[in-house]
Design a protein around this nucleic acid. Sequence first.
DNA 1: AAATAATGGTTCAAATAATGAACCGACATC
DNA 2: GATGTCGGTTCATTATTTGAACCATTATTT
Lengths: 256, 256
Amino acid sequence: MGTVGKAISLLELFTVDQSELGLSDLARRSGFDKATTRRLLVALTARGFIEQDATTRHYRLGAGLSRLARIREARFPFLQTAVPLVRDLATTTAETVHLSEFGIDRLVTIHVEHPARANRVNVDIGQLLPMHSTASGIAYLAFARDETVKACLAGPLDVFTAHTLTEPDAISRSMSEARERGYSISDQGLEEGVISVAAAILAADGFALGTIAVAAPKSRTTAADIAQRGLAVVAAAREISMRLNGDNLQTLRRQA
Amino acid sequence: MGTVGKAISLLELFTVDQSELGLSDLARRSGFDKATTRRLLVALTARGFIEQDATTRHYRLGAGLSRLARIREARFPFLQTAVPLVRDLATTTAETVHLSEFGIDRLVTIHVEHPARANRVNVDIGQLLPMHSTASGIAYLAFARDETVKACLAGPLDVFTAHTLTEPDAISRSMSEARERGYSISDQGLEEGVISVAAAILAADGFALGTIAVAAPKSRTTAADIAQRGLAVVAAAREISMRLNGDNLQTLRRQA
DNA sequence: AAATAATGGTTCAAATAATGAACCGACATC
DNA sequence: GATGTCGGTTCATTATTTGAACCATTATTT
């Protein structure tokens, strides 16, 4: 591994739970010599990729990363790109369509289109969706990094309804099915009487970045509706992924 | 410069305007050999810090940066906390409001709200602001660590306009005034015809962490406007500091 | 349509930077 | 006061980085 790779793998030791680490700790976790670790940290600190706490002497991720990430995001306008397609999908399905982006350990709802009818599923912008019990969550996990999947299924999995899946095996099976057919289905996993389909929106690296989902009252939803919405949601997700990544989207090689 | 520094300085060549660059271009701008540049890009690509467009072969900032930036922001929810207040301030002032965070030796613009009018001050996300010649810079220095202040005023202080202050004494005086009234004023220090007010956002240790500023065309700005915006910007900065730190914000004991 | 000058990408001996065992002083247990 | 940990440093040895010269393509220019 080159020096650059080593420096980056130091950065990757930081997680939400382990957001501040000491020198010896970093050396141990990375497997690099303490002197090497320190030299890398100094180089990273000089460019603002790492900050050091003045009192504890511990290291944390720096503001330089945020700056570059924002430059990237300025060019990578997820919301702007996706909203027109969310709107189209809402028109054709006449049901609630919502768009989510992954944040830390849940999906964050960043846009919603509601149909103009009284009996509908209501979703709010900013609402957080659990990963294991929503169509969006399963669709995301089906195309997420292994470590992300592991992290999301590690914690206690809340039970929301009698239909909520909490067995890791059952959840894995849902993910496999989602990978095969392209979209996930959640039958009242989060709320009684609500059935949803969702598809993952992929980043250029082939991993999921967010999801688009259609949620409807189960009472008026047939199996044919589900299949039709599934295809529509996959088409929308594909289109968003393509507009975001150009034709540069790498297909994710993945064990089924 | 070490290899890590070189790799990062490659990343820093990307801006909002220049978000995709070719190999030769990157080599030219960085001053590194083409082979070196390429080797660094390959290393960065392997870790997702850089992505390469499949067709144009051009390089751009990668998703790995966004991921790490999110981890940082999870412990440090500066943006999320501040953006609503930036937005409010933009609405009430009807002028450009920008939010900055300190990085290494300058302020980094991390969010901007522009008013819906043609004649306005334009600021880009990711833009770097010098410390001595902007309202934000002075507001930051007024509540920065002594060593930071010294470091920022040590280097050569660029002259941007006929109004740019470059005498350390004059700058110190601006800082004192900013401390007294709570906000700083920059009258065309960076660009002719632009007048700004800014206030520091404080971390839990009482030292500045970033700033919030209102920038407007001088031609339509009265002394009363400045005073009013000053109070508004101070209120916003206080509110952001409080939300970030809870009620355990230490008041900075400081020589006036 | 031929000539020219870009482009992205590769090679390998020479130059340079990275490495790590041993070391230091400071702090905390034991 | 002995022992273990911490963050940080040193310097001879070692391995990586470097860059001029080299392709093959793809625009430009004449």
